[in-house]
Computed example of a mutant assay.
Amino acid sequence: MATVILVRHGRTNANADGILAGRASQVHLDASGCEQATRVAEQLAVVPLVAVVSSPLERCRQTSQIIVEHQAGAPRSEIEPAITECDYGQWQGRRLNELAKESLWSLVQHQPSAAVFPGGESLAAMQARSVAAIRRLDAALEAEHGPGAVWAAVSHGDPIKSVLADALGMHLDLFQRLTVDPGSISIIHYGQQRPQVIRVDMVPGDLSWLRNGLPGTEEEVGGGAGPQTAVETGVHAPRIH
């Protein structure tokens, strides 16, 4: 089968402000997000992609366009509604620190398979449509281009985590154990016998944010803004002379 590279869009203004953007309009890549998307595009430039498939939301379309522009060839570029962000309903547009005080937050963290967002969709429904779309597209591109085909799907934190959980054979209730940062790539090869998860949350660049370890926080709904950069923390890696 073909190989899919799952790309989470670069950081947005909503990510940086701690807001659950959901499917809201006017959510763009911020300066860091554009840099992240460019780094991903440069990383993928050595891979001749047969297609770049994007969520219809603008932050994914921006990321997708940057990836396509860095390709030597001309990969097919298309929009796939089924890999769009979860419909968070009445949670959309609200601050994550406020949502964390609601009773549903605990269910999202510990039993996401039972979580249904008020006025929106369930996480189980989000996983079902995302997984079905990725597997369908992968099979179609393999049939068209052969088993060596590699393609990219540009999507969002929770849909990507749910696709990875399916490929790993994990119950949805365990998907919060996965982290998918903005501007990261994860790689799945759907083999004849079973899926192989080749990479998860691969982010090139600065690791100074790891200097003091990781905080013991719960996973943010929507995937969060990712770790702070060296510029934001004021901590820089030592110079090598």
Score class of each variant (00 low, 15 high):
Ile19Ser: 03
Tyr190Leu: 09
Ala152Trp: 12
Val4Thr: 08
Ile83Phe: 13
Leu210Ser: 13
His241Pro: 06
Asn15Arg: 00
Ser122Lys: 11
Gly169Phe: 13
Asp201Lys: 00
Pro118Gly: 02
Arg76Pro: 02
Val46Leu: 09
His145Phe: 15
Ser184Arg: 08
Ala100Thr: 12
Gly224Asn: 09
Asp206Asn: 10
Gln192Met: 02
Glu220Thr: 12
Pro215Lys: 13
Gln65Arg: 12
Thr3Tyr: 10
Thr217Leu: 08
Gln62Met: 06
Gly93Pro: 10
Val108Ala: 15
Val40Ala: 11
Gln26Ala: 15
Arg11Gly: 01
Glu98Val: 04
Asp30His: 06
Val68Thr: 04
Arg76Gly: 10
Val40Tyr: 13
Arg95Gly: 07
Ser55Asn: 00
His28Gln: 08
Gln65Gly: 01
Ser122Val: 08
Ala165Gln: 03
Arg136Gly: 03
Met202Arg: 11
Gly226Phe: 04
Val46Ala: 13
Gly33His: 11
Asp138Thr: 15
Thr179Asp: 15
Val197Asn: 10
Glu142Leu: 04
Val131Cys: 00
Val53Gly: 00
Pro159Asp: 12
Pro238Cys: 05
Ala140Phe: 06
Trp91Asp: 05
Arg94Asp: 05
Pro75Cys: 06
Ala153Tyr: 10
Gly146Val: 03
Arg199Gly: 05
Asp206Ile: 00
Arg61Lys: 09
Ala24Ser: 14
Pro195Arg: 01
Asn212Met: 07
Arg199Ala: 09
Asp166Pro: 03
Asp173Ala: 03
Leu29Ile: 01
Arg39Thr: 10
Glu80Gln: 03
Arg39His: 13
Pro75Ser: 03
Gly226Thr: 04
Val52Gln: 12
Leu29Ser: 07
Glu58Met: 13
Glu232Thr: 00
Arg95Asp: 11
Asp158Leu: 09
Ser25Gln: 13
Gly222Trp: 08
Glu232Tyr: 01
Ala114Asn: 14
Arg211Val: 02
Val108Glu: 15
Arg76Cys: 07
Leu6Glu: 01
Gly226Ser: 05
Val53Met: 03
Ser122Ala: 05
Thr12Pro: 04
Asp206Glu: 14
Ala16Cys: 08
Val180Tyr: 11
Thr179Ile: 10
Gly148Cys: 03
Val68Pro: 04
Gln127Lys: 15
Leu207Glu: 13
Val4Asn: 04
Gln127Pro: 06
Val40Gly: 10
Lys101Gln: 15
Ser122Met: 06
Arg23Leu: 05
Arg59Lys: 11
Ala72Lys: 06
Val197Gln: 13
Ile19Asn: 05
Val221Glu: 12
Val52Arg: 07
Val7Ile: 11
Arg8Phe: 06
Pro81Asp: 15
Leu168Pro: 07
Pro238Asp: 09
Cys60Lys: 00
Ile67Ala: 00
Pro238Arg: 11
Gly169Gln: 14
Arg239Leu: 09
Val197Leu: 12
Arg177Leu: 12
Ala133Asn: 05
Asp201His: 00
Cys34Pro: 03
Ser186Cys: 04
Gly191Pro: 02
Gln196Glu: 14
Arg23His: 12
Val46Pro: 03
Gly224Met: 11
Gln43His: 12
His241Val: 07
Gly148Trp: 14
Leu123Ile: 11
Val203Asn: 13
Gly205Thr: 05
Ser103Asn: 09
Val180Leu: 09
Asp17Leu: 14
Ile66Lys: 08
Gln26Tyr: 12
Glu42Asp: 13
Ile5Arg: 11
Ile19Ala: 03
Glu69Ile: 00
Gly226Leu: 10
Val68Asp: 11
Lys161Gly: 06
Pro159Cys: 02
Gly120Asn: 12
Asn97Lys: 08
Leu172Lys: 02
Val154Thr: 05
